[in-house]
């Protein structure tokens, strides 16, 4: 995307500068419209943008969690029994996480997930709008009062990942961060079974 953008920028600026360097007869209106407006304005920009739009949508489609039940289910998405469900509840200024696989357990500001398995995070808030963002695992998704949004994340390798709040939510915004612990299979089983970490 960056290379494409740079190429377009170079094209536009090149044409712009060439206008000042050009020495020749001035072109007429009709020819100008054909080249500049139809050719570059419509054909060029529309083909680039059409390609980009379609690419973006299918990329987005691939990242979707397994929602859309019934007749429409599963088009281009991964659903299966290995999906882990957790919930994230934001408040000013902390995060509280709960686990479907271990119903009685709550962790503050640390989210435990298994590595190598898709995790659906159900995100909500008790006060203002926040946003759940683990840059290395997925894009961000907002926590909206009264709504639950589900985000699919997946950590390829076990380890610790930094998580952030990404919607301004008052004076404690900067320090409103959390960590994600991705466990290997064994350690995840131990976590679910309730061993102290």
């Amino acid at each position: 995307m960056l290379a494409g953008a740079a190429a377009i920028l170079a094209l536009v600026l090149g044409l712009l500068l060439a206008a000042f360097r050009r020495r020749g007869t001035a072109s007429d209106e009709a020819a100008g419209v054909k080249v500049w407006i139809i050719g570059l304005g419509f054909v060029f920009s529309m083909s680039v943008l059409a390609a980009l739009t379609v690419y973006g949508l299918f990329a987005g489609q691939r990242l979707m969690p397994g929602a859309g039940a019934g007749v429409e289910a599963g088009v281009g998405t991964r659903v299966g029994a290995d999906v882990v469900s957790v919930s994230a509840e934001a408040r000013q200024w902390s995060w509280r996480f709960a686990y479907d696989d271990r119903p009685d357990h709550i962790t503050d500001d640390v989210l435990h997930i298994p590595a190598g398995r898709p995790v659906d995070v159900a995100i909500t808030t008790t006060d203002v709008v926040h946003s759940f963002w683990v840059p290395r695992l997925a894009g961000k998704l907002d926590a909206i009062p009264g709504h639950v949004n589900t985000l699919r994340i997946e950590a390829d390798t076990p380890g610790t990942y930094q998580g952030l709040t990404a919607e301004y939510n008052g004076p404690g915004y900067r320090a409103h961060v959390f960590t994600v612990e991705a466990h290997d299979a064994q350690s995840w089983d131990a976590f679910v079974a309730g061993d102290r970490q």
């Binding site: 949508l57 489609q61 979707m64 969690p65 859309g68 997925a138 985000l151």
Partner: peptide, 17 residues
């Protein structure tokens, strides 16, 4: 044509992320 075409190709009602 351009802006409503997703009705033909995109999954219904799936969330994002």
């Amino acid at each position: 044509l351009w802006t409503v075409y997703p009705v033909a190709v995109i999954t219904a009602c799936g969330g994002n992320g």
